[in-house]
Design a protein around this nucleic acid. Structure first.
Lengths: 119, 119
DNA sequence: GTTTCAACGCACTTTTCGGTAACCTCAAAC
DNA sequence: GTTTGAGGTTACCGAAAAGTGCGTTGAAAC
């Protein structure tokens, strides 16, 4: 967000325009329950749909599909159709998506701190 | 989250137990539309309820109340009842809550990058 | 042909989140 | 007494997010 409250107001009066608040833009791109988790795994290497699902047993395939679509839409991942050895689909982090890695690590580390801090 | 899928499973089988996934714990503490925004302002100095609301005109007082309650519950802020010059309530960041500042800055900077990258 | 795997689509349901509006108590100013 | 400000509480609602379960197509294995 900008340090000027009017920035927020401008954002609200033009809901269809791209947001200019960095915090909000970041939340749109990597917010929600599963986006960062998904990116975390993809940052370790390209994966197939089912591989991702097995890494995150609690996600529904519908939500995984939508999460991947959103990350793709935000240009953070790319979908690759491979033909060899067998035709299959792979998802991998895009160069832009690699920029999220330090952020995810920062969130994880803070999360660790927070858990260690108490309830 | 842990790098072991079983960690995730253990988390789900004990929904009432505190989560042990750092990413999830972080999201619980500072996730949602307003938590980080709220913390951002409080990091600049203690504020009264109405002061916060004026800084964030688009938040409803109901949601502001709940956001403050959650941040308090997570030990990130403290509520102080001041008696002078007039009785009033103040919210301020706790020492633990100060640890979120670098994280908020990281999210903002990434958000800037993301906005600069294109749609 | 049947079964299994991969990668979804889709209709519907449930849960969560954020918002609206009416209301409250207390204190101070007029 | 009335009005205003502070700091909420509560009932209700709609939207958004996440989940459930049935279904599809294509390919490979049996």
């Amino acid at each position: 967000m900008e340090t000027r409250p009017l920035g927020n107001k401008a954002q609200l009066e033009q809901p269809a325009a791209p947001t200019r608040c960095p915090l909000t833009a970041a939340l749109n791109a990597v917010g929600g329950k599963w986006s960062m988790v998904c990116l975390y795994w993809l940052n370790l290497g390209p994966r197939r749909f089912n591989e991702l699902q097995r890494l995150m047993p609690e996600i529904s395939h519908k939500v995984l599909t939508e999460t991947l679509r959103n990350l793709e839409q935000e240009s953070l991942i790319t979908r690759v159709d491979c033909m060899a050895p067998l035709p299959h689909t792979q998802y991998r982090v895009s160069p832009h998506g690699e920029s999220v890695a330090p952020l995810i690590e920062a969130v994880r580390q803070w999360g660790h701190q927070h858990l260690a801090h108490g309830p």
